[in-house]
């Protein structure tokens, strides 16, 4: 769980970097170059399946574990637990589910088009992700939904990073504090970074 989680978190950084290329005021040249590299390079293509595998396992294992965990307490408490714990840690399955919904939406707009599962919207080319992105982000409703999803992703990540370290046993008195901080900074970075793109397209494009 933690291992795949951390792996996916690494991927997010790559994705974010490419997304941020959208902000370069060059008519999408760099972004298109990067995304077509990602789309055509054979190593990346193979890696894509690894990535999907990662997502798949992370989600399936997450769901199975959560169901098992729920089964570990067949009779619940009248008064819900009030222990002092980090708020987000308790809701990982829910933030996870929200992210999953977004993921499907996201695939509908990009990946499924690429592999031909979804019709290319009128006026766009199959591989022109730049135009697709502009089309989507200039839609205010989509942009807000997009940002909302990333806030949930931030919540998920905030717990996830340090949790992954804990699960892998990479928890140490000396570094715990740093790991927690990195976890927080990382989640803000990802949520904020991804949100920059719609903000840019909504207000500054």
């Amino acid at each position: 769980m933690g291992l795949f989680g951390l792996f996916l978190a690494m991927f997010l950084l790559v994705h974010l970097t490419i997304n941020l290329l959208l902000l370069c005021n060059d008519g999408g040249e760099l972004f298109t170059a990067a995304s077509s590299f990602m789309g055509t390079n054979i190593a990346i293509k193979i890696f894509e399946y690894v990535l999907f595998g990662g997502f798949f396992i992370h989600i399936i294992v997450g769901v199975i574990i959560t169901l098992k965990n729920w089964a570990s307490r067949p009779v619940g408490y009248l008064v819900a637990n009030k222990s002092h714990t980090s708020f987000f840690s308790k809701y990982m399955i829910y933030t996870g589910a929200i992210i999953f919904i977004f993921l499907i939406l996201h695939f509908m707009h990009f990946f499924f088009i690429k592999i031909g599962w979804v019709q290319v919207p009128a006026g766009l080319e199959k591989h022109d992700f730049y135009k697709m992105a502009i089309a989507l982000f200039t839609n205010k409703l989509y942009s807000f939904v997009y940002m909302a999803f990333f806030i949930f992703l931030g919540f998920h990540l905030n717990h996830a990073i340090q949790s992954g370290f804990q699960t892998l046993g990479l928890n140490h008195n000396k570094y715990n504090c740093t790991i927690k901080k990195v976890s927080l900074i990382y989640s803000i970075l990802v949520a904020g970074g991804f949100s920059l793109v719609p903000i840019y397209f909504m207000f500054f494009f």
């Binding site: 965990n69 089964a71 222990s83 714990t85 308790k90 717990h159």
Partner: peptide, 15 residues
Amino acid sequence: LGFGNCSNTYACEAE
């Protein structure tokens, strides 16, 4: 024995 898995909420440490 049917104990659940750890999801690192750390309620245990708090209690």
